[in-house]
Simulated scan of single mutants.
Amino acid sequence: MWETESLRLLVTVAETGSFTRAAARLNYTQSAVSRRIAALELRAGGPLLVRLPRGVRLTPAGRVLHRHAVDVLDRLARAERDLTVLHAGDGGALHTGAFATANIALLPAALRALKDARPEIDVVAAENPTGTLMRQLADGTLDLAVVSDYPYGLPSADGITATVLCEDDLLVALPRRHPLAGSQAVDLYELRDETWIQSAYGDRPTMLADACARAGFTPGKVMRIAGWAGKFGYAVAGLGVALVPSLAAPAVPVELVLRPLTDTALRRTVHVALPETPLPAALALKEFLIEAIVERERPRSPG
């Protein structure tokens, strides 16, 4: 294995053309320089320097190793600078993740604020279910994730801490021409004859099924649509109604209205999750997420 200091010494000797001047620059004794260069030549399998009456110069083998040494030292210097920036929270890559509706407005708003404050940070964003996000945090793939306790509760992961960001109520999306569109709040039982537009993944428990059971009925007609754009499209066309998390409200088309439900249990808790030793940039993003929640919940003045 090539020792970094020996490579640095070779580069310095080549730059100064002298053992004496290299020793002075690196705060070595001349005899120490001679010993280390001799050890380096032994490792290289032959002479690296031609000893001249007044100084030294590189041999062909010395020029080859010198070229690689310069490249190695430059890479190490850049790595040191990158790590300094990363640990200061002023730059480097920040890998984030969120579940689908958190990526509609919440996380983008916080990331925009982070980029405005620290433009050198290189944000890498991903979207996945909460269970996947927690595993990615645990294996170091992600530096921060926005996760929720729906539908199975918040998964635990070694070395991961989660902080509550907000409660995310589920609202019902209705076409504006729907008879209940003008209601202040909707009782689920009033929607017992509706077609429900739900996730395409029908094998997992849903809040809707539990809530309908509490209201005294079972949803009779269900359409399985995977993406939110498709769900909204079907609802706009009057083909059904859908439960929509409040986090998704900014993406709801103007042809739909969102109404709260009388069943206050229809909600999930949203968390920001971080590894045990988070990056400073991740901690900064956490604060911007909290600010985004505060801004989201601030009452709007009329007009």
Rank of each mutant, 00 (worst) to 15 (best):
A282H: 01
V164G: 03
A181F: 04
R78M: 10
L106T: 00
P205I: 14
D116I: 03
E194C: 13
R298L: 15
A200W: 01
L256K: 08
I160W: 01
S148G: 08
L266A: 11
P250T: 10
P47R: 04
T29V: 08
G97D: 12
L285C: 10
V244N: 08
L174E: 00
I225C: 05
R78L: 11
I293W: 00
T262F: 06
A162T: 12
G89H: 02
V222N: 05
H68L: 01
R135I: 03
E3G: 14
K115E: 14
L289P: 01
R57F: 00
A23M: 08
G89C: 00
G17L: 09
G140E: 01
S18C: 11
E295T: 14
G55H: 01
L180R: 04
E194F: 07
L239F: 11
V222H: 06
P245I: 08
G230D: 05
S246H: 11
E291R: 02
A281V: 02
V241H: 10
I293L: 00
A117W: 06
E3P: 03
H271R: 03
A44L: 12
E127V: 14
D158P: 07
L111N: 05
T163I: 04
S31M: 11
Y28F: 14
G55T: 02
P151S: 14
C166Q: 06
T262Y: 07
A157R: 02
A162Q: 08
A173I: 08
E41S: 14
P129C: 04
D158Q: 09
G153N: 06
G240A: 15
R25L: 07
L42P: 03
M223D: 12
A93I: 02
V257H: 08
R192D: 03
L188V: 13
A38Q: 13
L48M: 10
E190T: 11
R298H: 13
V123P: 08
I121D: 03
E255R: 10
R112N: 12
L73Y: 06
A23L: 10
K221G: 08
V11M: 10
A173L: 10
A162N: 11
G220W: 02
A292W: 00
